[in-house]
């Protein structure tokens, strides 16, 4: 999916720097800040809402808010464009 408007809410307060969210991302949305030892949600526009980063975070720091309407179904009939 491209041109989507999914959102990611990150609450850094409880983050323990375990890096699991960074590893979990399969499309390079999440980068790692070596100084702060925290994830950076750098390419949110490319998130495919697999939810693995949210699921794996033991400290509940991450919330993915998918915006399904912004995902195109690409069918010719108006209702699906």
């Amino acid at each position: 999916m491209i041109d989507t408007k999914h959102r990611i809410i990150f609450n850094s307060e409880n983050c323990i720097g375990c890096k699991l969210c960074y590893k979990a991302c399969f499309v390079d949305v999440i980068r790692w800040d070596e100084e702060k030892k925290q994830p950076v949600f750098q390419y949110v526009e490319d998130c495919e809402h697999c939810f693995w980063c949210e699921v794996l975070c033991k400290k509940n720091c991450i919330k993915i808010i998918p915006d399904f309407e912004s995902e195109k179904l690409l069918q010719t009939f108006d209702r699906y464009l």
Binding site: Y22, C25, F26, W52
Partner: peptide, 13 residues
């Protein structure tokens, strides 16, 4: 691996 092997790809999704 262009992401992180073990977490990447489709089998785990």
């Amino acid at each position: 691996e262009k992401q992180t092997a073990g977490y990447s790809g489709k089998a785990c999704r």
